[in-house]
Write a protein that binds this DNA or RNA. Structure first.
Lengths: 136, 136
DNA sequence: CGGTATCCCGGCCGATACTG
DNA sequence: CAGTATCGGCCGGGATACCG
């Protein structure tokens, strides 16, 4: 074991390799909250409270944590207004907007295919519970 | 705000609502292993062992678990050959292939922008150590 | 080969309370 | 308003061993 990851000179063009940069990017994106925050910011600059209200179920802690992560990776900017009460706005960077467009395609896909997946799950559930029920 | 499609029911088309089907779909996709498995199967039908070898770091348990989930949701089919030694092939369904195309765009994006994100992280790390804050 | 079964640890994440 | 602090549960998921 070694502390920290050694990406070496690999720019990581194979996400299947753990040592690849693209793999670590994936690890960030593979989060429900990251996805929702990025999508929420796609069409508008929003404040902390606005995000919290829009994203149902997120806690202040997770929201802050997610935003910090996105900020660290250069996907979101954090703009502080020195006023009282405090005002902080979050906005996607160009990089973030670029990504958001792709994530939004996933959302569109999810919306359009939700019925199919629901049916698939129902069928799977049927098959699983069927042996305890009738067998005609 | 919601593109004029705020149905607000459980069939819903607003992934920000926890009760929405599209939200649950997202919860499936928001997984590193799901992503990698789907992408691995994008170009080829593969066996369990082939997947395990291709996806670095995945354990048998997680691979099976992920495949079962994808099968349940109708994204992957599992074909068993009654031979000895056993042979099982996993293949994307049409639905799965459709999704895989989108996920592959994410991968392409990750590869292309990995350097930018690497730099952003380096800058963030610098700033954290220096604490010499100056806003623009 | 293609899985299951089991143990178990770390850390993710939710809940809540508090501060500037 | 925009966060931090803290605690704790639960479960994701790694390691390992074992079946058909």
């Amino acid at each position: 074991m070694y502390s920290g990851r050694d990406f070496g000179d690999s720019f990581g063009y194979d996400a299947f390799k753990r040592t690849c940069m693209s793999h670590t990017v994936l690890e960030v994106l593979a989060s429900k909250w990251v996805y929702l925050v990025v999508c929420a910011l796609r069409t508008a600059t929003l404040r902390h409270g606005e995000l919290a209200r829009k994203i149902e179920g997120i806690t202040p802690k997770m929201l802050t944590q997610t935003l910090r992560e996105l900020e660290r990776d250069g996907l979101v900017t954090r703009k502080i207004y020195p006023v009282i009460p405090p005002k902080v706005e979050y906005e996607l960077t160009d990089l973030g907007r670029n990504l958001a467009a792709l994530l939004d395609q996933i959302r569109t896909w999810s919306e359009q295919n939700a019925p199919h997946i629901r049916e698939a799950r129902a069928r799977a559930q049927m098959g699983a519970g069927e042996m305890a029920e009738f067998q005609s």
